[in-house]
Amino acid sequence: MTSGTLKKPQMQGLLAERVRFLILGAFTVSLSVAAFRKFAVAEPRKKAYADFYRNYDSVKDFEEMRKAGTLQSAK
């Protein structure tokens, strides 16, 4: 029987290899979070604002606030 020899531990370049792996992981996670936020938060918010201002009448809104007494300077 021959006894197997153990593989020598990596003594040089261990930090560089680990940092490279962690940087790639961080880049991947940050890119996926940015894409998720864009499509889950920003786009629906833009659509909601566009829908609101499509039919918004500022004069009508002003008159309603004036009649309700919300605006003190416009009577």
Rank of each mutant, 00 (worst) to 15 (best):
T2F: 12
S3Q: 10
S3I: 02
K7W: 03
K7I: 01
K7Y: 04
K8C: 03
Q10H: 10
Q10D: 11
M11C: 02
M11V: 04
M11P: 01
Q12S: 11
G13R: 07
G13T: 00
L14Q: 12
L14D: 08
L14F: 06
L15P: 01
L15R: 10
L15T: 03
A16G: 03
A16F: 08
E17W: 02
E17D: 12
R18E: 07
R18Q: 09
V19R: 10
R20Q: 08
L22I: 01
I23F: 08
L24C: 02
L24R: 05
A26E: 11
F27Y: 15
T28Q: 02
V29W: 09
V29M: 12
S30T: 14
S30Y: 05
A34E: 01
A34P: 00
A34L: 08
A34C: 06
A35N: 14
R37K: 15
R37G: 07
R37N: 09
K38W: 08
F39E: 10
F39W: 13
F39N: 09
F39L: 14
A40S: 06
A42T: 08
E43Q: 09
E43Y: 02
A48E: 07
Y49C: 13
A50C: 14
D51Y: 10
F52N: 08
R54Q: 10
N55S: 06
N55Q: 02
Y56G: 04
S58R: 04
V59T: 12
K60A: 04
K60C: 01
K60G: 03
E63D: 14
E64M: 01
M65W: 07
R66P: 03
R66G: 01
R66Q: 08
K67P: 00
A68Y: 14
G69I: 03
L71V: 02
L71C: 05
L71H: 09
L71P: 01
S73E: 08
